[in-house]
Simulated assay, not measured.
Amino acid sequence: MVRDKEATKAKLLDAALDEFAEYGIAGARVDRIAAKAGCNKAMIYAYFDSKEGLFGELLKIQIDRVVQSVPITPEDLPGYAGRLFDAYREEPKLLRLAAYHRLENGFDALPESEAEAYRHKVEAVAQAQLEGRITAAFNATDLLDLVVHMSILAFSTPNANRDLVVRSVERLIAE
Rank of each mutant, 00 (worst) to 15 (best):
A81F: 11
A28W: 11
A42D: 13
E57P: 01
K9N: 08
E112N: 02
V66R: 10
M1R: 09
L143A: 01
L144C: 07
T8G: 04
V2N: 09
I72D: 10
L94H: 11
V166H: 02
A28R: 10
V66G: 05
Q127S: 08
A87P: 09
A34G: 09
L103Q: 14
G79F: 02
A109D: 15
Y45P: 07
A174P: 03
G79D: 06
A28I: 12
E175Q: 14
Q129E: 02
D14I: 00
T141K: 11
A128T: 02
D142R: 07
Q62R: 14
E123A: 15
D14K: 10
E75P: 00
F55L: 08
D31M: 10
T8D: 14
A15Q: 03
E90N: 10
A128C: 02
P158A: 14
E57H: 07
E131S: 08
G24K: 12
Y45N: 09
P74N: 06
L17C: 02
D4Q: 10
L143S: 00
V70K: 12
L146R: 03
I44W: 08
A26R: 08
D49I: 03
V70L: 13
L143I: 00
Y80S: 02
Q127M: 06
V165H: 03
I63S: 08
P74T: 06
Y88E: 09
D142I: 01
E123V: 10
G82P: 05
D163E: 15
G79K: 05
F85P: 03
A154F: 04
M150C: 02
T135K: 02
V147R: 01
A160N: 02
N139W: 01
A37D: 06
G38R: 01
V66Q: 09
G106F: 11
V2K: 13
E22G: 04
Y88L: 11
D142F: 03
S50V: 06
A21C: 06
L58I: 05
I173V: 15
R133W: 01
Y100F: 15
L84D: 08
A99I: 04
H149E: 13
R65I: 00
G82Q: 07
F20A: 08
Y100R: 10
I173G: 04
A26C: 00
Y118L: 07
T8V: 14
I25Q: 11
A15E: 04
I33G: 10
Y100M: 07
S151G: 11
Y118S: 07
L144Q: 04
A21M: 05
Q62P: 01
E22L: 10
A109S: 15
Q127C: 00
L103H: 12
T8M: 13
K121E: 15
F138C: 01
R32N: 14
V67Y: 09
Y100E: 09
L153I: 00
H149N: 15
A42K: 12
Y80K: 05
K93I: 00
A46G: 00
A109H: 13
E175F: 12
D163V: 05
A37V: 05
T141L: 07
E114L: 09
I44V: 15
D108W: 09
E170N: 10
N40W: 01
P74C: 05
L12F: 04
V169N: 04
I44E: 09
R162S: 03
